[in-house]
Write a protein that binds this DNA or RNA. Structure first.
Lengths: 199, 199
DNA sequence: CGTCGCATTGATATCGCTCAAATCCGGTGG
DNA sequence: CCACCGGATTTGAGCGATATCAATGCGACG
């Protein structure tokens, strides 16, 4: 059975694409560069970053296995952020031109592409609401309720707690303390990379 | 000149759509209900909500004037959250079937729809970046730099300063103080609903 | 003229940020 | 096998920025 990008992308587009293996820390593109490609993550993780005046980095998005990134750049001429591998990763590099052409020609694929964008949009908006909450505890709870699976609102942590802290707009110290307090008070349980609500 | 949804949606689709005026608190759809429509907010605000076991509500997104919501109902059979008017609102209710049909039949519109989603996604990510900044002043500056027009980074305020405060994830008091301080120090100027940088 | 909501400013408290230090863990090399 | 290293994790102490509570002025609107 087809897996990964092969399940989504037509053979023609796959043929036009190239496989890229990159080590942790590799830069795939930079802000202002011409948008030559959209990427698909086969394995690993890639961060879309922007930098403040003092060099502090803000993670706009972290694309993991099975996700596209730079899709939003498809209709703009230049990238609007940097892309850096957060782990050693295997990517599929899809030429923007070929993708654009396929979107024109294949309504079925076009529809799929719309579904992908819609999903990303929902997820981004949910994160906006999360970041709008004032307290660390509320943000963690929001994460569980909005992204958690099953009755226990299980959330599997993809990366480190530090990464999660940045995702939540908190320092890692505050997140550690908050999780510890929530666990102490029986609001959540933690077991090897999985957060959930007891009960 | 056309405004709002009329500027985006083709006449045929507008004809198939219906205008809905709803009072604050009105429910537009509920979790699990069949996805019959996509909505566009002409005025007011609508909250997309999800509920935890003990009735805690989590806001997934608050859609405001000029935004679509429930775009995801295009590809799933049931809504995954509740939609409740946060204020008296005027909405455009676009039948999912008609929209789907148009996306299939009209590649030009399809492309346009993709462009709309891409733009919203970029805008949402930009807001994520803004909310990830720690200081009130930095958020205001980020707003000017990322959304401002022209050499002075002019930003026209659509609503009240209170609304802007909420958009920035701040209380209105802090925003007032921050703007006053920035104006005092010559970082920005304010003139009837327009923020800009002097020089 | 009275009311309502926005804008503004003051005083205080809270919570997250910063700096600091100790521990743990996986990987690396001798 | 063990010593070592870097990064994640954890806890502590204190500070500062934002939230919160409170009061006032102002303009719109009936």
């Amino acid at each position: 059975m087809k897996t990964g990008a092969a399940a989504i992308l037509p053979a023609g587009l796959l043929a036009a694409s190239s496989r890229v293996a990159c080590p942790k820390g590799a830069t795939l593109f930079r802000t202002g560069g011409p948008t030559h490609a959209v990427f698909y993550v086969e394995s690993g993780a890639v961060r879309l970053l922007r930098f403040g005046r003092e060099g502090e980095e803000v993670v706009l998005h972290e694309a993991r296995a099975g996700e596209f990134f730079a899709e939003a750049s498809l209709d703009s001429a230049r990238y609007h952020c940097d892309a850096v591998a957060a782990e050693p990763s295997e990517l599929l590099k899809i030429p923007a031109g070929a993708l654009r052409a396929l979107l024109e020609a294949d309504p079925r694929f076009s529809r799929q592409w719309i579904a992908i964008l819609s999903r990303q949009l929902r997820s981004a908006r949910s994160r906006i609401e999360r970041l709008s909450l004032k307290g660390a505890r509320e943000r963690v709870l929001h994460l569980l309720l909005s992204e958690g699976r099953g009755p226990g609102c299980e959330v599997r942590l993809a990366g480190t707690l530090k990464d999660l802290a940045r995702h939540l707009g908190l320092t890692h110290e505050v997140l550690y303390r908050t999780l510890a307090a929530m666990e102490r008070e029986g609001e959540i349980t933690r077991a090897d990379g999985v957060l959930r609500r007891p009960g």
